[in-house]
Structures are given as structure tokens and as C-alpha cells.
Design a protein around this nucleic acid. Structure first.
Lengths: 206, 206
DNA sequence: TAGATTGTTAATCGATTAACAATC
DNA sequence: TAGATTGTTAATCGATTAACAATC
């Protein structure tokens, strides 16, 4: 039996950074890159980059570095970005609506495919090419559109309730923009992206 | 001479979480809280909370815990949130405009007080109670309004140029929503908040 | 006083980095 | 082959956690 190493979150967070960098190299028709060069450009230690990548396989060529296109493909496959990932957005206030529009024009495999709001006045409105659903439709739409991930962009006091509903529908991964901590059972991954909290911690550095 | 410990970023990021929690307790008229209780509610180790807080002073009372209001005030003071922090927002696309509106209704000391855009068509437009300035006014407005912090919400290819201009104006702290790494000289603090990258790393957990 | 809880030390855990044999 | 660079081990660094004397 192979020993499964738990891969640290901090490594996973670096993978999209590597990927984006490699895609920039591809645009400049650069074929190979060394960990040394990557480290300089990304402000990271080359040994760390090699170690991160070696967790997933031997992607490099000794004496030569990494083949850019090949490594990018590997990272896309590791992250699971080789097929579209359907996302539900809950809460179409200023921030939610903007995230929806923003995502629409991004050429990325993580796609918002359905939007929801608990406020009856919002239901039926169009944001980009999507119509706002009522919360009652959540379970049905999540199943129909094979939605795997959710973004919470509702006010703080509504966030926990929304999270509970999402989890009930089988959602396992949540990006939370609400300025509050949400409690979830084991096996559910929540990433907080609260702007107010970020600004407050940045205030310290002034 | 007192030895100055470099306080880890990871500790600074937890302080606003503690603060928000204490403010919730205040709303519920709770006077004191133990690190044990805080740890349960915030999913953190109590020893870690005590250690974090003890870096800044002896805020607790043995046998009793922490006085909620007092600790909240201390954290506000440590973070520098006891006076308004003026922020410049650069880039009023969907996301920038939403951040501006969102910030407007947040009751927090970090305030967006001026907005800028490099696109002539945007200049003069009103977002909430603010008028979009041209980039040429950046230096002047930053001085006039005593702006200390900036939010970048421009497309990736414009981000580095904007960052350079901000740094030229004396800005030391930047929250970057553009999906690209920006290179800055030592002494400048950049926090990345790119939604696409966050979604891509979350994809891994599916 | 007895019970509770802090602040802090020491132990543990985990992540980063340096160093280098393997090898393209 | 000589030079370059990987993958990986060992050393280092730093953060988390357990344990407990101090003390309210």
C-alpha cells in the first residue's frame, strides 16, 4: 500500500500561481524554465518550487529544467481544471453581481453557472446571461447543472444559513465573502475572502 | 534596549478575526471570555490565542479570562483602527465599483475616499458619493486626502504600472485584486486577493 | 480557600531552505 | 565530456500545541 501524504494547503495555494506564470511564459513562446528562474520571477525559493512539484511527480528534466507546456498541463490536471467546474453564486448584491460579471469574462474553467438570492425582489433579475433563482430552487438547480462549488456573497447574518443549505445540497467547497466565520462539518472546505478583514489586517502595516 | 520580535503575518491575520468575534460578544452583552471559549467558537487552539495576545501585552485576568470590551479596544489600537484609514481605489470596473459601494455601507475605519481609473470614459462618473478621478490626479489627491492604503482592481496587464504609480505617491500598503503578481521594493506590503486564483486552488479539493 | 484560567516554557510538529548525488 | 539542474535528504527555521507554575 502506498503511503498517502496529506498535501499541505500552502502547497495547493501555490499551484495556481505556478500555472499562471507558466501560461505567461507560453504566451512568450518560452519552452523550458528552471526552478531558479521561476524562483526569481515569483519571489520564491527554487528548492521550494522543486519540492512542491516533486510531490506530484517527476516533471523536470535534469540539467534542463521544466518543459513549460507539459508542466502547465500537469498542473491543470492536478488542480482538476481540465474540465469545467460549475459554481453556484448565492447573493447578488453589489459584490455578488460584480463577481458574476467578472467571472463571465474570465477565460477559466471555474464558471458561475447559476445565481441565487433570498430576497424576492432580486429573483428573476438578469445579471449578464444568468437569471437570479430563488433559494427554494437551490437543490434542484445544483443537481441539474452538476454544480460542485459555491460562492457565498450574502450579508454576515445570512451566511451560516446559506452555508447549511449548500452543504445539504451536497456542495463540498465554498468560497465565503461574507464577513463572518461559518461552521461546517468535517470534509467541507471553506476559504474565506472577506475584504473587510483583509483591510483590517493590512492596517497593521501602516 | 528591548528586543523587537518580528510579529508573524499569520498572527496579524488572526487579530481582525478576534476583534470581530469580540464585537459579536459585545452585542450579546457578554463581559468576559476565556481563551477556551474563544477557541471553541473560532476553531482555534486556546494556547494559540493566548500566545497571540500575549505578544502585545497582558490583556487577560488569571482565573477569569479576557474582558471583552477592553480586549476589543486593545486590538483596535494594535491594528491602528482607532482612527479612519483613507484608501484609494484604482480601477472602477465591475469589481472595483462593487468594492466601493460595499465599503460605503460597512461600518469600519478602513474607508475608500477616492477612486481612480485610467480609462477616460470612466473619469467623472459617480460611484456612490465619489467621482472617478483620472490617474494624473493620483499624487495630488493622495496628498490632499492623506491616503495611506490602496486597492488595485484593474486588469492584470495594468496592475504593475498602477502599483508603481501608487508607490511613487508614497503608498506603502496595497490590496491587489488583479490576477497577477506585482513586484514591489522592500518595505511595501502587498496582499493578493485574486478571485480566480482562489477558485483554482479550491478546485483541487473537489 | 478552591477552582479557573492566564502567560510562558518546553515539546512537538510542519514547512522552508541548503546541499549534493544523480543524471540529462 | 562539462555544465546545468533536477529530485531528495538533512538541517534549519518557525509556528502550533501541551503542560504547568503563577495568581486572580
Amino acid at each position: 500500500m502506498t503511503k498517502i501524504h496529506k498535501i499541505p494547503d500552502v502547497v495547493i495555494k501555490r499551484l495556481p500561481i505556478y500555472l499562471r506564470y507558466l501560461q505567461q511564459l507560453m504566451e512568450r513562446d518560452i519552452d523550458t524554465v528552471s526552478s531558479q528562474q521561476m524562483g526569481e520571477d515569483l519571489n520564491l525559493n527554487p528548492a521550494q518550487i522543486r519540492k512542491d512539484l516533486s510531490i506530484f511527480g517527476d516533471f523536470g528534466v535534469k540539467g534542463m529544467g521544466y518543459r513549460v507546456t507539459e508542466l502547465a498541463e500537469k498542473l491543470i490536471s492536478i488542480l482538476g481544471l481540465d474540465k469545467q467546474i460549475n459554481i453556484a453564486l448565492v447573493g447578488v448584491g453589489n459584490l455578488g453581481a460584480a463577481l458574476c460579471q467578472y467571472n463571465r469574462y474570465q477565460n477559466t474553467s471555474t464558471k458561475i453557472v447559476a445565481i441565487f438570492d433570498g430576497h424576492p425582489a432580486k429573483v428573476g433579475q438578469k445579471i449578464g446571461n444568468l437569471v437570479v433563482h430563488p433559494m427554494e430552487d437551490l437543490s434542484k438547480v445544483v443537481k441539474e447543472l452538476n454544480i460542485k462549488m459555491a460562492i457565498i456573497a450574502v450579508p454576515a447574518q445570512a451566511a451560516q444559513g446559506v452555508a447549511d443549505q449548500l452543504i445539504d445540497c451536497g456542495i463540498k467547497v465554498i468560497l465565503n465573502f461574507a464577513p463572518t466565520l461559518i461552521q461546517v462539518p468535517p470534509g467541507i472546505k471553506v476559504q474565506n475572502a472577506d475584504v473587510t478583514t483583509e483591510l483590517q489586517s493590512l492596517a497593521y502595516y501602516l
